[in-house]
Design a protein around this nucleic acid. Structure first.
Length: 153
DNA sequence: GCCAACGTTGGC
DNA sequence: GCCAACGTTGGC
């Protein structure tokens, strides 16, 4: 059982959008970074939990919790010529971009902002604070618990 | 395989 | 809108 963090720009796809999806689930498409892909493809398991983080917005923050509901899903956008994520180098018989399906569990009681996280000593070595560009990240259990508790304060 | 140039991300 | 950090590309 591992913990993760998914970043999304809320103008593109917010946690609210996920809550409104059929069965609150969606295939996490569009990741075109190998480090992020490898985490999803090689390390995620069904029932792992993940934070949903809003980036590139007025209040960057962790806003919700998701569950991984399926793994090793070929990213359909890689084969969609009308998608900005179309990748002509991805062979349908050997897809380059394997992703996961995420299912919304619940919003945090309140968002835990990036600003707030930066002030917490316990989170000093969290990936989000040190490599903010990685779009899918591992989260240590201690960091997870710290943030969940924080949201209850 | 190196590395400069370029593009993208994302906080501010 | 700026800019630092990082990833990718492509010539050599």
């Amino acid at each position: 059982m591992h913990y993760w963090l998914f970043k999304s720009e809320p103008d593109e796809f917010s946690f609210q959008d996920l809550l409104h999806c059929d069965e609150r689930r969606t295939v996490w498409d569009g990741v075109r970074n190998y480090q992020a892909r490898n985490l999803m493809r090689d390390h995620m398991a069904v029932d792992d939990l993940a934070f949903f983080y809003h980036s590139s917005c007025k209040q960057p923050a962790i806003v919700g919790i998701c569950r991984i509901s399926a793994t090793k899903v070929p990213d359909p956008s890689a084969f969609d010529t009308s998608s900005p994520y179309f990748d002509p180098k991805s062979d349908p018989s050997n897809p380059r971009w394997l992703t996961v399906e995420v299912c919304a569990l619940e919003a945090l009681s309140r968002p835990v902002t990036l600003k707030e996280m930066r002030q917490l000593e316990a989170l000093a070595d969290m990936t989000l604070l040190n490599n903010p560009r990685l779009s899918v990240q591992p989260v240590e259990a201690s960091h997870w618990q710290c943030i969940v508790q924080r949201a209850e304060t």
